[in-house]
């Protein structure tokens, strides 16, 4: 069963469109929701968490209508975007209270809260008041309360905001572990490489609309009208360029001289379709002996995809 199924989903706030005509299905696993500020990410996540209702269309989460749905709320964890917590409580007391509200007894809630806080790296600070936490620690408490009750689906709104690089690395690792453990994760971010470091599967939103869905590569493949850049380091780059230029998928080639004299040159090709080009390149390289030492396609990264899709 899909974790999220939205059909012609729309939500507006007075005259402002938060989300418009969104139809999408998200399968279990890790999925990134990306888009610039105002794209509709938080609106979609609030609809998923059941804080608000759609203005039109429908949304089902784990097969259920999410608004004020106790059965669903037993099965999801939500980390909101806003930096708001009960500042007068300790980290442990706060998470324990929220776990108890999820139906656990005091003892088990305490154990789960402690475990979740340790998993997010707050084991040393769990008896300190949340009001004294740094921004990064507050972000991690929010994450801890969302995972402590062991949900099937984790909904995270900008969970990496405010974290220092080390904490960010740890949280990314934790999210991957949770995904490997069978938990589905839906996380939003406007920082593209953050999402890419957690998952390859993305939903791309812009101005309340779904622009694209799939893996980064698949999304990139959809953009046939946008040429793709391929960079190849080869000892006989000039000969390779001659071999490639005859291929109809290759729009242009250019050579860059390497600084190191013995390293060969760099060939930069713009191609129409990666699916057609890479098999051709493999065959050409295998038969031609061009001395290829590296191959990369920088357009595969989300930043490029995003630049293409969002002018």
């Amino acid at each position: 069963m899909s974790v999220l199924a939205a059909h012609e989903l729309g939500r507006w706030y007075g005259q402002v469109v938060g989300l418009s005509d969104l139809s999408v299905e998200v399968e279990p696993g890790l999925t990134g929701l990306i888009g610039p500020n105002g794209a509709g990410k938080s609106t979609l996540l609030k609809l998923i968490a059941g804080e608000i209702r759609p203005s039109r269309g429908s949304v089902r989460v784990l097969g259920l209508d999410p608004f004020a749905n106790k059965e669903l709320h037993r099965r999801i964890g939500f980390c909101p975007q806003q930096d708001a917590l009960y500042d007068d409580m300790t980290g442990l007391a706060l998470v324990r209270l929220l776990v108890r509200l999820s139906g656990f007894c005091r003892r088990e809630a305490g154990e789960r809260a402690r475990d979740a806080l340790e998993r997010v790296g707050l084991g040393e600070a769990l008896d300190r008041r949340v009001g004294g936490y740094s921004k990064g620690m507050r972000q991690r408490v929010k994450l801890a309360q969302s995972i402590a009750h062991g949900p099937e689906l984790l909904v995270l709104d900008e969970p990496l905001t405010g974290l220092d690089p080390i904490a960010r690395r740890d949280v990314i690792r934790l999210l991957r572990e949770l995904g490997e453990g069978g938990m589905s994760v839906l996380l939003s971010s406007h920082v593209l490489h953050e999402v890419q470091s957690v998952t390859d599967s993305i939903l791309l939103l812009h101005r309340g609309r779904l622009l694209a869905q799939g893996t980064v590569g698949e999304v990139r493949e959809l953009l046939s009208q946008h040429p793709r850049r391929v960079e190849i380091d080869a000892r006989r780059a000039r000969d390779l360029a001659q071999a490639l230029i005859g291929n109809p998928d290759v729009l242009s080639v250019a050579l860059e001289r390497a600084e190191d004299e013995g390293a060969g040159d760099r060939l930069i090709a713009r191609v129409k379709s990666a699916a057609e080009f890479f098999p051709f390149l493999t065959t050409t390289a295998a038969t031609g002996g061009f001395g290829i030492t590296s191959l990369e396609s920088p357009d595969d990264d989300l930043e490029s995809v995003f630049d293409y899709l969002v002018p």
Binding site: A49, G50, E51, A68, K70, E71, H73, R74, I76, G77, F78, P80, Q82, A84, L85, Y86, L98, L101, S102, G103, Q145
Partner: peptide, 15 residues
């Protein structure tokens, strides 16, 4: 006002 109600609304409790 404190924006903490989100934590309560997503718990399996009657609102």
């Amino acid at each position: 006002e404190d924006k903490t109600i989100s934590y309560l609304l997503v718990r399996p409790i009657p609102r």
